[in-house]
Amino acid sequence: MNTKFITGKNFKNEKFTTTRLPRADYEECVFEGCQFQNGFLDNQNFAECEFMTCDLSNTNIKHSIFNDVTFRDCKLIGLRFEDVNGSLISLRFENCMLDFASFFGLRMKHTVFKDCSLVETDFTETDLTASTFTNSNLNRAVFEQTILTKANFTTVFNLALSPENNQIKKAIFSKESVLGLLKKYDIVIE
């Protein structure tokens, strides 16, 4: 079966919650205001695509490829990125709600999280080398055996991670964000 190839197409205000997006390879496509929540985006290939003001909460994305894909102003609650084809994953998130999402075990070097909510997001065993978390809420985000070498946390808030259980060599912290490294010790700093 030949896979359809769709390039440069704009999808605007379409609903894919009960009817699925046609199975294809999507390149340089823009999805704006589209609804995917609780739907199916599995076994799709997205390259150099942009999702703007879309709701992908709890969408099935198993075996899909997201290569050079930007999510802007999107709702991605509970999305299990760990189920995607991780061999070509390259993502950027701007002003997105990624609460309860999971990136377990993925290799996501140089990923940008800008102005995002990452409440209880799971980064266990994720390689986030040289990734940037700008003005993002990391309340109860899980970092266990995570590679955070050269990651930038200077403007995050609600950060709590254990230096003993993660690789943080040359990670960048502000004076305020570094306090999250001490939170587990339950000490008072004035």
Rank of each mutant, 00 (worst) to 15 (best):
E27M: 12
S177E: 05
M108P: 05
K9W: 02
G33R: 02
D122N: 12
C49M: 08
N38D: 11
G78H: 06
S87I: 08
N2I: 03
L159D: 04
L88Q: 13
K183M: 08
M108Y: 01
D68M: 13
L159W: 03
L41T: 01
K169Q: 15
R107C: 11
G33K: 00
C29V: 08
N13S: 09
N165V: 04
F66M: 03
S177C: 07
N85K: 13
L76V: 01
H110E: 10
E94N: 01
D25S: 09
R107W: 08
D25W: 10
R20C: 11
T129V: 05
R80Y: 12
D25Y: 13
S162L: 06
T155H: 09
N67H: 13
G39R: 05
V188A: 06
L138S: 07
S162Y: 07
N13C: 02
I65G: 02
K12G: 00
K9F: 04
T19I: 14
D99W: 03
E82P: 07
Q37V: 03
D115M: 10
T53K: 04
N135R: 13
T59N: 07
I6N: 00
M1K: 12
S64L: 14
F51N: 04
F81Y: 10
T154G: 02
L21G: 13
K12Y: 10
I172H: 09
K183Y: 05
G180L: 06
F143R: 05
F100W: 14
E164S: 11
L91M: 11
D122Y: 02
F11D: 01
G33P: 00
L88F: 09
N158C: 10
S102Y: 01
T19Y: 05
D122V: 11
T53L: 03
N85Q: 08
F11M: 03
N166P: 06
E50A: 11
F31D: 01
M108Q: 02
K12R: 10
K15R: 06
A171E: 01
I77H: 14
F51D: 00
F11E: 01
K175E: 14
S90Q: 13
N2K: 08
V84K: 03
N165R: 10
K170W: 05
K150L: 11
T149E: 14
D25H: 14
N135L: 14
E48T: 08
N10V: 03
T70H: 09
V119N: 09
M1I: 08
M1W: 07
E28M: 08
V69C: 10
T155W: 06
L138N: 03
V30S: 08
G8P: 06
F133R: 09
Q44S: 04
V119F: 15
N58Y: 12
C49E: 07
S102T: 01
S90D: 14
T129I: 07
F46R: 02
F103A: 02
L118K: 03
K175P: 01
F103G: 00
F51G: 03
F104A: 04
L106K: 04
T70I: 13
C29H: 02
I189Q: 07
R107I: 13
R23S: 15
E32N: 12
V119H: 12
I189Y: 09
P163R: 12
T124E: 14
C29A: 03
F100H: 13
S87W: 10
L88H: 08
E176L: 11
S131R: 09
T19W: 00
Y185A: 05
G180T: 11
N152F: 06
F113L: 07
F143H: 02
